[in-house]
Design a protein around this nucleic acid. Structure first.
Lengths: 329, 329
DNA sequence: GCGTTTTATGGTAGCGCTGTCATAAATCTT
DNA sequence: AAGATTTATGACAGCGCTACCATAAAACGC
């Protein structure tokens, strides 16, 4: 493998000059630049980033820790991040935490070994050790999805509590009174919990409360939603609306209604969260809340690139959410 | 930041001994090991992987180049890869090529700067430059999804040509005769093209051919499928089955039928590809082919970890596919 | 009990690059 | 035209770790 020294020799310049050409840094005479560039091309030189990172004590890697890849939500965020990083020198290294803060901590530490330029993670809740690393590290930090709390550096997302609250207000305004809720078993999905709390608060303010709940004993999925709704309705007849923690489960709910001949919206309202494309492409578009996942990822990565140094103050960016009225509630 | 030298000093051993403890490599007396470990804990030492990679000329990074993150297919593959890498020291660095071989080449080169232990990419078709890098590099290479061709090192996937062929045979056996096909505009989706060819071959062998095609002028999506089917049926009445390049579009097709009051299966068969969960959770499960995306990712990563050195022979692993009869064709 | 193997540890050099400081050449002031 | 500034380049050290080789101590064989 050719090294920078080989390039420098061929171009008849010093290593450091060749290095400057590679990094497009510092003043370089155009003729010299061209000579170095042609030497690079001739040798097929590829810079060694490990050496570069070691020498400069900083890398072009950006650590991305996501809770899951099982539904499209986090890939959407990742897509946003990747979009912002295209055309920059930064590269995302990804880890999946399975919604487990201890796994998050373990992966974070292993990522720090690369001296990343920035760390992106989901949520504001981390282990004390992880939080300590994040606070004391010489890198930027973005905490995504959630803004209900105090970030280490930057938070980009929306208030899930408020989304839950608005959901409740919206459904009450639409005339629904007998609320059910179908959850899944990921108790560490803080954001789903925050939406749940917001929903309960809105109901309480309206003199109502959830009259039925069912927790599906497994991860979130369309099938989970379908089965959960079936059980919920069997146990508590007379519900007029069921709120789901996300669109996947809500679509399962709709599928159950289609199967069981229940008139969605008239007889039973169905409300989700996320605003996935597929729910909106249905003949009866899902009533839900649009979370701006791509935007969250993109905005976060862009913000992180603005400055290498962590500024004094913390930044909170609210990407907001939209209620999609849809046709199911 | 504490370095290995600090750890060594505190544990009263040489740097190299401390290094061996960190890497769990070579014979170390238990007492020494414990002393080093406690020094590491006390100092909060985090190894510097850039230095390690530079010294050993190999990294724990695995480059993963995916065509897209826009539907769940590649995240599923990534999830499989990640699952195989959990509990190992390897970390995936990801890049998205947008189905563009030139973008793939550019990202590949930037990834090679990290001296990755392995490179994972999709498909067997790359630019000549990319192919040269892959062939001459000192790393393992896995080419995923497709096995209709000659891999550089390992290929893991299925024969898309055969999947298309089986689709045709299956639908002919079911009595369908008047075939339509709805495509999307990503002409570089080699695998969709291979399935298309296989389908045409099966039709030809049955004395049939596609009597209608429509290309949606945009990327694949549920909405694309819905609109494509509408146009297809308007232009060519009398179709009795429409094959879609994937489940997302096929579900759009079903949604169009629901909306237009067309009896799916009896009046019009709908066939997809991928076997996504959501299609199977519908009241009328989608007839499709199950591609084993998670398995492909997991198998590939596991195979790559078996040996650092590229073996003499090439490995092709056929993960196969299942026809899901479903209720829509 | 003396050579032989195994186990445990260390010294040294160097991986390929970039930061720092120095210097030379070109350009600008007045 | 002499000094001040800007532009362009280089020498050198060292980032933190591991490969390589050497060595010492313990265990083994007959």
């Amino acid at each position: 493998m050719p090294t920078l020294a080989d390039v420098a020799r061929l171009a008849r310049v010093s290593e450091i000059t060749a290095s400057r050409v590679v990094r497009a840094q510092g003043p370089i005479a155009e003729a010299t630049r061209l000579r170095v560039l042609s030497a690079i091309a001739e040798l097929g030189y590829i810079p060694n980033r490990a050496a570069g990172s070691l020498a400069s004590a900083e890398s072009t890697l950006m650590s991305v820790l996501l809770p899951s890849l099982s539904n499209i939500v986090f890939p959407d965020v990742l897509r946003g991040i990747h979009t912002a990083l295209t055309e920059t020198a930064f590269q995302p290294v990804i880890g999946v935490t399975d919604y487990d803060p201890l796994v998050e901590e373990r992966i974070l530490v292993s990522f720090l070994a690369w001296q990343p330029a920035a760390v992106i993670l989901a949520g504001l809740h981390h282990t004390p050790t992880a939080r300590r690393h994040l606070e004391h590290g010489r890198f930027r930090v973005a905490e995504l999805m959630d803004i209900d709390g105090e970030p280490v550096d930057i938070a980009v997302g929306m208030s899930h509590r408020q989304a839950g609250y608005e959901t409740g207000k919206h459904l009450i305004k639409r005339g629904y009174r007998r609320f059910g809720y179908a959850r899944h078993n990921i108790s560490t999905d803080d954001r789903a919990s925050a939406r749940y709390e917001g929903l309960c608060l809105a109901l309480k303010e309206g003199g109502l409360s959830l009259i039925a709940e069912h927790c599906y004993p497994g991860a979130s999925s369309t099938k989970a939603g379908r089965e959960a709704l079936q059980i919920l309705l069997a146990a508590t007849p007379g519900l007029d609306v069921v709120v789901f923690p996300n669109d996947d489960m809500a679509m399962g709910g709709i599928f159950h209604c289609m199967h069981a001949g229940i008139a969605v919206k008239e007889k039973l309202g169905i409300f989700g969260f996320n605003g996935l494309d597929i729910g909106q492409a249905m003949p009866m578009p899902l009533s839900t809340i649009l979370s701006k996942r791509f935007l969250i990822g993109k905005t976060a990565a862009e913000k992180l690139l603005e400055s290498r140094e962590r500024p004094a103050g913390k930044t909170i960016i609210d990407t907001g959410f939209d209620i999609i009225e849809g046709a199911t509630a």
